[in-house]
C-alpha cells in the first residue's frame, strides 16, 4: 500500500524501508534509553528530506551516533539479524572529521538506500557512524560473517564508493569477536 501511495505521488520507492536512529551518550540513563528512533522512510525523496533536515554528523557532539538500519533490525549486536554478522569498519583520524566524515557518511547512506551491493544487498543490515573525540568511525553491518563471498564483495564495492586508494586497507570484524575483545585486539576476519 505504501508503494502505491509513494508511486501515486510520483515518488521513487526504495527496495527497503529504512529507520534512522540517534544515540546520545547520557551516562545518567540506561543505554537503551539513549537510543532513539528518529523516523522511517521508503522513498528517495523522503531520504533527502530527512537528510537535509538533520544535523550533519560532523556537527554532532562527541559520544553521539547515527544508525541507519533496515526496518525491523535494531542497531545493536544482540538483534537476531546482527548477531551472526559483522562490520566493515572505517576508522578516521581526528582531522578527517572536517574533510571526509560527512562525505563518507553520505556515500555510505546512498550505498544502502540505493541497494548498491548488487546480488549481496540483502546481506546488509545497516550502517553506524560514531562521533568520538579519539577518532570517528563509520561501519556497514552485514548479517552473516561466514558468508565470505558476500562480505568481500560488499567490502570491495564500499571501498570503491568511498574513493579509498588501493594503499588503504579496511577490515571486517565479526560482532561476536568485537563484543568479547577490547577494540585494539579484535580479530580482523577479512581485509580489502
Amino acid at each position: 500500500q505504501e508503494l502505491l501511495v509513494a508511486e501515486s505521488l510520483g515518488k521513487h520507492p526504495l527496495q527497503n524501508r529504512w529507520a534512522l536512529w540517534f544515540f546520545k551518550n547520557d551516562k545518567s540513563k540506561m543505554w537503551q534509553e539513549n537510543l532513539r528512533l528518529i523516523t522511517k522512510f521508503s522513498t528517495v525523496e523522503d531520504f533527502w528530506a530527512l537528510y537535509s533536515h538533520i544535523q550533519p554528523a560532523s556537527k554532532l557532539s562527541s559520544g553521539c551516533d547515527y544508525s541507519l538500519f533496515k526496518d525491523g533490525i535494531e542497531p545493536m549486536w544482540e538483534d537476531s539479524q546482527n548477531k551472526r554478522g559483522g562490520r566493515w569498519l572505517i576508522t578516521l583520524a581526528k582531522q578527517q572529521r572536517h574533510t571526509e566524515l560527512d562525505r563518507f557518511w553520505l556515500e555510505t547512506l546512498m550505498c544502502l538506500v540505493g541497494e548498491m551491493f548488487d546480488d549481496y544487498s540483502d546481506e546488509v543490515c545497516g550502517a553506524v557512524i560514531n562521533i568520538r573525540a579519539k577518532g570517528d568511525k563509520i561501519a556497514i553491518w552485514t548479517r552473516e560473517a561466514e558468508n565470505r563471498e558476500g562480505v568481500i564483495h560488499i567490502g570491495r564495492v564500499y571501498k570503491e564508493h568511498l574513493g579509498l586508494s588501493q594503499k588503504v586497507a579496511i577490515g571486517y570484524q565479526a560482532h561476536a569477536d568485537t563484543a568479547t575483545k577490547s577494540s585494539s585486539l579484535t580479530k580482523t576476519k577479512f581485509v580489502v
Binding site: 521513487h12 527496495q15 541497494e115 548498491m116
Partner: peptide
C-alpha cells in the same frame, strides 16, 4: 525486480527541495 538506484540518480534528487 529489485529497486536499485545508482549514486548519480540519487544525487539528482538531493537539492530538489531547495528548488521546490
Amino acid at each position: 525486480e529489485k529497486k536499485r538506484y545508482d549514486r548519480e540518480f540519487l544525487l539528482g534528487f538531493q537539492f530538489i527541495f531547495a528548488s521546490m
